[in-house]
């Protein structure tokens, strides 16, 4: 009926008197990949546990395909990969997946294909104790794909993985998203999600301080671009007198300018070729955006 897989409405919850989440509102549409960013303790894992129905909301509510968390329809629709999971070392990868298939009413015959999809076909019959960290994480991902869930919750799925494993990991996630699964994943690796998710939500101290596409967030933040100009030999003083900015390392001049003035500024620098030997343009990246939104005081935060 609705076009939302997950809707979190003004959710507040906490442990005892400590509030961990405060008025969080977030929706995820079918096939959408949303990255959840936030410092340690910002409430990312807590939000996941609330979506799974492990923690009851104090205020607000959560709906998974219109169902409350914890009900069978919601449990079947959502699958989860926790931040740290250690499957029993004595069991084989195939046995682990057959177990969770049995609990999810998914066909056990799909297990070999799942293992193949994460590149563990050959290790299927080996005990988990002999797996490397990357293999164990991939087994966790295969587990999260059991029963073709509508929503994948991945809690820092790539922490501790090497760049190659990371890329493979995101390929599997993209494949699942291509099949219509929505993905909500948390991460600290800012660069890695930059081109691999559709939307970014930033949690800071339990509040959602930003939610949108990277372009949208960049526009809203209107972070200045940084331009590092390298002066020709001995021309640094004259250059600074002409364009302003701050001196760096004797021969450099650093400029910051608002996004709309970047192009005119670069054009002007190009006209000063007798003074300028090189121009290095640094546009604000995800890390700058992240810092910008995380540092906003709670009063200034807009959802």
């Amino acid at each position: 009926m609705s076009e939302t897989i997950l809707s979190v409405e003004a959710l507040s919850l906490g442990y005892g008197r400590l509030r961990v989440l405060e008025g969080v509102t977030l929706t995820v549409a079918p096939g959408e990949r949303v990255a959840l960013l936030g410092h340690n303790g910002a409430g990312k894992s807590t939000l996941f546990k609330a979506i799974l129905g492990f923690l009851p909301p104090v205020i607000g509510g959560i709906r998974v395909l219109g169902h409350a968390p914890g009900f069978d329809a919601a449990r079947i629709a959502v699958n989860y990969l926790p931040e740290t999971v250690a499957f029993p070392r004595a069991l084989t990868g195939a046995e682990v997946l057959r177990y969770f298939s049995g609990l999810r009413r998914a066909p056990r015959t799909a297990v070999p294909e799942l293992l193949a999809r994460v590149g563990l076909a050959e290790a299927a019959g080996r005990p988990v104790g002999s797996y490397s960290k990357g293999m164990r994480q991939r087994l966790g991902l295969a587990q999260a794909l059991i029963g073709a869930p509508r929503l994948l919750l991945l809690d820092e799925p790539t922490s501790g993985l090497d760049p190659i494993s990371r890329r493979d990991f995101y390929e599997v996630i993209a494949e699942a998203a291509g099949r219509g699964a929505s993905v909500l994943l948390s991460s600290h690796g800012l660069e890695e999600i930059e081109h691999r998710t559709d939307r970014v939500a930033i949690l800071s101290r339990g509040r959602l301080v930003a939610d949108g596409t990277l372009e949208g967030l960049a526009r809203r933040a209107a972070l200045p671009a940084r331009i590092r100009v390298t002066a020709r030999e001995g021309q640094a003083d004259r250059l600074q007198a002409k364009v302003g900015g701050t001196r760096f390392n004797g021969c450099h001049v650093d400029l910051t300018c608002p996004p709309e003035e970047t192009l005119p500024t670069v054009a002007r620098l190009a006209g000063l070729s007798s003074l300028v030997s090189d121009v290095d343009l640094h546009r604000p990246g995800l890390a700058d955006l992240y810092r910008h939104f995380s540092d906003l005081a709670p009063e200034e935060a807009r959802p």
């Binding site: 546990k49 799974l52 492990f54 069978d72 449990r75 079947i76 959502v78 699958n79 989860y80 926790p82 931040e83 740290t84 999971v85 250690a86 499957f87 029993p88 969770f100 609990l103 999810r104 009413r105 587990q143």
Partner: peptide, 13 residues
């Protein structure tokens, strides 16, 4: 402690 209980309880079990 191993984190597997969360996975089991995330299923309809």
């Amino acid at each position: 402690e191993r984190g597997t209980l969360a996975l089991t309880l995330a299923t309809p079990a």
